[in-house]
Design a protein around this nucleic acid. Structure first.
Length: 583
DNA sequence: GCCAACGTTGGC
DNA sequence: GCCAACGTTGGC
């Protein structure tokens, strides 16, 4: 689509160069020939639509708008070649409706011609007024609830789109029927034009004017008609009452009761109500039109020619193509047309994103190596610990060893950090350990996946068949699924005794393991510490892997066909070339 | 009686 | 002024 748009713009630009504002009759033939030749050269003969009639015909006399640069057939908009001679700057109706400050400018020396020109314009306006008032009359003649002109494509649509908010609200589309409105694509476009929009022109809110060219074109009323239109709204209300007069008396009474309920307010109501209704109607209609136009932009149901290359079939409803093949054909030709130059451009211009990604990948690789090295070191630490424990097993118990449980009179007490109860210093470590395990058992960590780690896993991975999940506590600390090993009565504690606060010596504690209060569970805690470090490293590796995957995906997307077709680097300042290394 | 959808209301 | 919500209406 983007390419189609580009072609369109470029052609307009070319046209603008040749035939500036409008085409003088004597130059007309030449210009037409030139445009035709260019179209043939660019290979897009007749595929661009002009004018309010949206035809590709450019054989007739045409005049270009100085604001939007759209081209119009003279006979479609009521401008003759003679008129065009006296016009200096021409602005189309759509542009003038959007921007009231725009006025058609005439040449000075042809001032006298303005009379006839303006009369032409009047004729033209009159023609439009007639058309629109006919439409309005038609609509008003129909029943009160009919908001159909019966002529626009929306009125001819028989089925709800099922996609707009109003359709989605309908019960048949699974909605809850809150909005209770007609499908947006079936709402008459002429209804909004005829009754309300002049108000928005007069007040010129601007933002409300986001409507199609056609609507704008038809919106171009003068003040007189604006007044007429304002008067339309109350008429509708009156008609409603009169129509209800025809209906049973019950309804009439109902109305009376209603007005009585409102009390003194009733006499004042007509004017206020009319005003408020006017404004409400105005706003709701302008909103509706904008929304409908938006919808039409994306889901156009106007009959048009298939966009397929060399295809002359009408497009399917809601599609730009007559068949899937035509769509594929156009897509293919676009790829053949655009991709080679994009690849060439890709190779010739530096890509900062690509460089940054490469740097990041290198950084990630380094971090991965470091993490793996650390993991190996931790594995070694475990082996060392195993060796230490093994060495302790061969030692014999020394009863008087420092740290062994002894009956001392001077008992100090301490508070448990977990439960807060007072415990003796001697049994503090033992109590706190048990207490911690008790609380820890209340919280569990589960995953549906079993851990798959090279070497020994640090996770418990107990499988619960009911939950069909695996326990993700640290194996060594899991109070639920790891049983405390039974300690032999003559087992030695075996904990290395530190020389000072930070270094530990070769000497091992030879107190009986059951009675050593100083090194209670030392082996378990050390293993847990190492396992935690291992866990951290594995998580880091996982994170690095994820980052690498994302970067690689971004890199492959960038160079992919889709990426190349969708994106393009534009160097806005070729005099100072882009740097490949921004840092 | 059902249903589509119009027109009004009141909250924001 | 906008807009969601809903009472009401007219066609079937």
């Amino acid at each position: 689509m983007a390419e189609g748009g580009t072609e369109h713009t470029s052609k307009k630009e070319k046209k603008g160069e040749i035939a500036h504002k409008f085409v003088l009759p004597e130059r007309q033939a030449k210009v037409n020939l030139l445009i035709k030749a260019m179209e043939q050269a660019t290979g897009d003969v007749g595929d661009t639509l002009y004018c309010i009639c949206r035809s590709s015909d450019c054989e007739r006399f045409m005049i270009g708008c100085d604001h939007c640069e759209e081209w119009y057939h003279g006979d479609c908009i009521g401008v003759t070649q003679l008129d065009a001679r006296s016009i200096k700057r021409y602005y189309c109706d759509a542009c003038r409706a959007r921007n009231p400050s725009l006025e058609i400018q005439y040449k000075n020396k042809k001032k006298e011609k303005r009379v006839s020109e303006s009369s032409d314009q009047e004729r033209f306006d009159k023609h439009h007024k007639e058309y629109r008032s006919k439409l309005r009359e038609k609509m008003m003649a129909k029943s009160r609830t009919t908001r159909r002109c019966g002529e626009c494509s929306a009125c001819h649509r028989n089925e709800d789109c099922g996609r707009c908010d109003f359709c989605k609200d309908m019960r048949k589309f699974g909605g809850i029927n809150k909005l209770r409105q007609k499908c947006r694509l079936r709402q008459c476009t002429n209804y909004g034009i005829s009754t309300s929009d002049k108000g928005s022109v007069a007040t010129d809110t601007g933002s409300e004017r986001a409507v199609t060219d056609l609507s704008d074109f038809e919106d171009d009323f003068d003040e007189e008609e604006a007044y007429e239109n304002v008067k339309v709204a109350p008429k509708k209300r009156e008609r409603r009452t009169s129509s209800s007069e025809a209906s049973p008396k019950k309804k009439k009474d109902k109305k009376k009761v209603k007005s009585k309920e409102k009390g003194k307010k009733t006499p004042e109501k007509p004017q206020c109500a009319i005003n408020s209704q006017k404004s409400r109607q105005k706003s709701s209609l302008s909103r509706r039109r904008t929304e409908v136009d938006d919808a039409l932009e994306t889901d156009d149901d106007m009959p048009r020619q298939c966009y397929g290359p060399a295809c002359i079939e009408p497009a399917r409803l809601g599609s730009k193509y007559c068949s899937d093949e035509c769509g594929m054909k156009l897509a293919k030709s676009r790829i053949y047309e655009i991709l080679p130059s994009r690849i060439q451009q890709w190779h010739s211009s530096p890509c900062v994103g690509e460089d940054n990604n490469k740097k990041l990948l290198e950084q990630l690789r380094q971090e991965t190596i470091e993490a793996r090295l650390k993991l190996r070191q931790l594995d070694l630490k475990i082996q060392e610990l195993d060796a230490l424990v093994e060495r302790g097993k061969h030692l014999s118990v020394v009863a008087e060893q420092e740290g062994a449980e002894q009956d001392e009179d001077t008992e100090l007490s301490i508070y448990c950090v977990t439960c807060g109860s007072e415990v003796s210093q001697k049994g503090a470590l033992r109590h706190m350990e048990k207490c911690y395990l008790k609380f820890e058992a209340q919280t569990s960590f589960w995953s549906i996946y079993k851990t798959r780690i090279e070497g020994n896993s640090m996770f418990c991975d107990f499988y619960n068949p009911q939950q069909k999940m695996y326990c993700k506590r640290l194996k060594i600390l899991c109070p639920e699924h790891t049983k405390e090993p039974k300690v032999n009565p003559d087992a030695v504690c075996g904990c290395p005794i530190p020389v000072n606060l930070f270094t530990e010596g070769d000497v091992l504690c030879r107190a009986p393991k059951r009675k050593c209060v100083k090194h209670f569970c030392w082996e378990k805690l050390r293993r847990a510490e190492i396992d935690m470090q291992r866990l951290r490293q594995w998580m880091k590796l996982d994170d690095l892997f994820e980052q690498e995957r994302n970067i690689r995906m971004a890199m492959s997307n960038r160079m992919g066909v889709l990426g190349l077709m969708l994106h393009q680097t534009v160097d806005h300042d070729p005099t100072t070339p882009m740097k490949t290394t921004p840092n």
